[in-house]
Structure formats: C-alpha cells, structure tokens
Simulated scan of single mutants.
Amino acid sequence: MFHPKTIAISFVALALAGCATNAEFDETGGIKSVRSSCPAVAIPVHTADVTLFDPAGSRDARAIDVVATITNLRNTCVQQGDRIVTTATFDIQARRTNTSGAREVVLPYFATVTRGGTQIVSKQLSRVALRFADGQSSATATGGGNADIAASAATLPPEIEEQVTRRRKPGDPDAATDPLADPAVRSALRQASFELLVGFQLTQDQLAYNATR
C-alpha cells in the first residue's frame, strides 16, 4: 500500500527538486538560478522492487519466485496552453526462479501526483504483464504515468520568483545568501512544487520486506 508518509520521505529525498533550482553562470560572471515548473519525477523509497514468494507466506530466500525491478525512469514535460503535462515511462525487468513452462505475471503499479511533498493530487493504478517464455528466466515490460497540472498552480508569485531567479554577483551583499533561508520563499516554493511518483503498488508485507532486506 502507498501512504502519504512514503510521499513525505520521498519529498525529503528530492530536496525541493520539483522546483528545480539550478545555479548557472551568466555572461558577466554572476550566478543566476533557473527554475522549472515541471514536476519532479521519482520513485519513492522501497517501491522500485517487488519480490513474490512461493509459498506466498514464506520469506525464505529459497522460496523466492519472481523479482521485478523498475529501471530506466525517463520523462518528458511540455506546456500545453494553461496546462503542464509530464509523462514518465520506465522499464520493468523481472527474473523467475522456476523456468519451466510459459508464464504470465501481472504486477500493479501506481503513478501519483503530489503537491508540496504531502498532498496527493491524483493517483493512477495500472497493471503490467510480464511474459516469460518456456525455459526463460527473464522478462521485460514497460509502464508509465502522467501528471497534468495547471500552469498557474506551478508558478511562483512574481516577488518570490524574483528572489529565487535573479542574478547574483560576487561581492553583492546577498551573494552568499540562500533564498531558501527565507521561510516565505520556502513556503511558496513548496506550494508551487509538484512531483510525479511512480512505483510498484505493494502490500504492507511487501513494503516491510523491501525496507528490511
């Protein structure tokens, strides 16, 4: 199961990545910050892998049946009128222990849009089918999800935008001052920050297994 607590942990790891503030040098040698309104895309902690056991109640390594991993996460982001649309795609690589016979394994995964690291805006549940050929131990598949948000919601107020993105040169009084030190700036950035999180839809037991293995 996917919980807001997991989102909060992920948001800390992203460290306001949804705001995508990057330092760059301009033509005069000053430093400027570039902010993107596109949602950050990530996999919440402990949700990139799922392990199936046979028998299902066992947690013995000898009972491992199938292990699947989300990998090669990639995304595109475009603004369409007053909407910002981010699409994430990823690969799923799986291995099975018993290679006898053809087999299909269906796994659920989520694509959740959050705001400010804790507020769930939307959640999509999907399933992916992994098809193992007879005698083959591995299978691959692809999955994906998207975030569709209002551009206005991801836009900072003009006065906050100016603080975050204006150029700073060595010697300026506030050149070494991090704009995020201002609580008002942090709050505005968090409110305008969206994330698209994807991962396996795990049971409590599966999540606990991933957290302790």
Rank of each mutant, 00 (worst) to 15 (best):
V185K: 09
A129P: 05
A176E: 06
A111K: 09
A154W: 05
L189K: 02
V128C: 12
P158C: 15
T140I: 11
G171P: 02
L130H: 03
E104T: 14
A102E: 11
G81S: 11
Q124R: 08
V85A: 03
Q191L: 01
P173D: 12
N146V: 00
L189Y: 03
T177D: 07
P179R: 11
L130P: 00
T99W: 15
R127W: 07
V113L: 06
F110K: 10
P170Q: 06
A147T: 13
F200V: 04
V128A: 09
V198G: 00
V198D: 00
R103C: 00
F110Q: 07
F110R: 12
S100N: 15
D174H: 07
V85P: 02
L156A: 10
L156P: 05
A139I: 02
T86M: 09
G81P: 03
P158W: 15
L125K: 14
R168F: 04
S187C: 01
R190I: 10
R95M: 12
D182A: 09
Q163Y: 05
T97A: 14
R115T: 05
Q136H: 10
G81V: 06
S138Y: 09
L196R: 02
A102L: 11
Q119G: 00
T86V: 13
A147C: 10
A88P: 00
A147N: 14
G101K: 14
V85K: 05
K169A: 14
L197V: 01
A176I: 06
L156N: 07
D178C: 04
V106G: 00
R167T: 15
V198S: 01
T86W: 11
Y109T: 08
K169C: 13
I92A: 06
G171M: 06
R95C: 01
A176V: 03
S126W: 03
S193Y: 01
G144N: 02
G101M: 09
E159R: 15
G171W: 03
P158R: 15
T155S: 13
K169V: 13
I120S: 07
T177Q: 10
E161P: 03
A154P: 15
G116T: 14
V105K: 08
G143H: 10
R96F: 00
T86F: 06
G145P: 10
R103F: 02
Q119M: 07
I92K: 07
T99L: 15
Q124K: 11
R127G: 08
A181T: 11
G116P: 08
T97C: 08
T118A: 15
V85F: 02
D174W: 05
A151W: 01
Q163M: 12
I160F: 03
A154M: 13
L197K: 09
A102C: 10
G144K: 02
A133G: 15
V128T: 09
L107H: 02
T114D: 11
I120V: 15
V105H: 11
T99I: 15
F90K: 04
